[in-house]
Each structure stands twice: as C-alpha cells, then as structure tokens.
Design a protein around this nucleic acid. Sequence first.
DNA 1: AAGGTTAGTTTCCTATTGGAAAGTACTTTC
DNA 2: GAAAGTACTTTCCAATAGGAAACTAACCTT
Lengths: 122, 122
Amino acid sequence: MKKKAVINNTSVCQVRMQAISDTMSILSGKWKFHILGTLIEGNKLGFMDLLREIDGIGTKMLSKELQDLEMNHLVSRTVMNTKPITVEYAITEYGATLSPLIRELAKWGIDYRQSVHGSKGV
Amino acid sequence: MKKKAVINNTSVCQVRMQAISDTMSILSGKWKFHILGTLIEGNKLGFMDLLREIDGIGTKMLSKELQDLEMNHLVSRTVMNTKPITVEYAITEYGATLSPLIRELAKWGIDYRQSVHGSKGV
DNA sequence: AAGGTTAGTTTCCTATTGGAAAGTACTTTC
DNA sequence: GAAAGTACTTTCCAATAGGAAACTAACCTT
C-alpha cells in the first residue's frame, strides 16, 4: 500500500505555496526589505540618501534592486530637473501594502534577539 | 555643508534594520518558508512526507534546511523506534510564532496574483 | 582647470546556493 | 537473497548573488 501525500494536496495549500514563492521571488535578495523599509520610513529619498541610510550596500546593488522594485511597481522613480540632476525614490501606494509584512519581519527579529539574550536558549 | 543621513540614524531604526537582517538570515534560502508552512499545516511529518509535500525539493536541501531550522529551535526532530526507522519533524512552540509572518507572506502573494491578473498592471 | 556632487554602469572576481545522482545503512517484505 | 522503504550524506557541478573598484557623464563651485 503506497502512502500518498495528504496534508498539502488541497488546492488551498497549493495556492498558499505558490503565493509564498511569488512573494519571496519578488522580495528576494539581501537588500529589498531594507530598501523598502527605508522608503516606508522616510518618504522620497535620493539615490545617495539611500546609499547613506542603508548600511553596507554598494551602488551596484542599490541601483539593481531599485530597478527590480520599480519594475514591480513597489517603488517610484522620479527624475527631478535640478542643477546636479537628482532622482527621487519613493514607495508607491502598492508598495505600502508591504508595511504589515515588514512590520512582522522586524517584530519577529526583535523578539528573537530578546529570546536569545533574555533567556539563554529560547 | 555636508548633508548627513537623518532618516534612519535613530537607534530605533538601527534596531529595526538589524531585526530584519536577523529574521532574514534565519529564514534564508529557497525552502525554509515552505518547510515551516508545511509543518504548521500538518503537525508531525516524516522526512519522506515532507519530501512529497514540498514540490521540487531534494533530499540534500531538505536535510540541510531541517538541520538549520532545528538548530534555531523552530523545528523539532524525534527519532521513533519503529520497524523501518522513522523520524518525526514538527514545528516547535517557538516556531509557531512565525505563523503571523508566514500568513502575511502568503496573503500578500495571493493579493499580488489578484492585482496582476484581475486588473492588468496594478 | 580642478574638484565635488549627483546618479548611475561596467568589469572582474569570489563565495554561496542549490540541484542531480549516487552511496550508506538498517530493516522488513516477498 | 533481492527489492523496497526509511533517512540521510556525500560528491560533483553549474548558476546566481553580490562586493570592490573603476569608469561615465552632466553640472556646479572655486
């Protein structure tokens, strides 16, 4: 008698799995959450602002990740006609729908630190 | 006059950034959320069960990711003394604290699909 | 003309990720 | 004794991710 997978064979679970893959592929990489988080905090930031805010990121990654996020309509890019050209990056209305997710992410990380340092060993 | 980073220089934001890094490093990789999601759905699953449930994963990755999750106390591993040895993997109480995060992740992914297919273009 | 600011791009290189396949080890069933 | 099931580990390889540094390019200030 062959045992069959029964727990996640329902279409509900298939959809759930797919949904998690979708979200993670859009938000993949080391910097997406940091960029989004920063833009949610401080609306409208220039390229150099972001470079300064996000500790450790380089121009290549920042540029590439911003393009990804723009392509997915999570971030808007506006070229201003200022003296030395500046660009304003901002979170879009759609991008702002990620706020609860990012809040959960940060919340869990903070609780994690506390559970590790507060009591030793969780 | 040098402009300084002002938006995220507060300790609150530093902590937030660190928290996001922590969470993401613990849950990094292609499969962690899938494994956790599956274990949250169906409590207590064997290695082979997980292999069948999680579409596309191989033995190497499943084994490695389970070890990671076990090390972080998110998943428990119990060797049963059955005829052909079986191992029961289950979500821990601590691992279950990730439920809201995973729920948000899935929710956003589902909404994303709808926003792309429902109306074209977000 | 030199140097600084903005906003990137390009190149080169290394480290990590992750998949396929085969191997290990033990036990039960045919 | 051969096959099949459990649960892995190991090896080998290819693709991707990501960092450092240099470079482009336009404009302004001194």
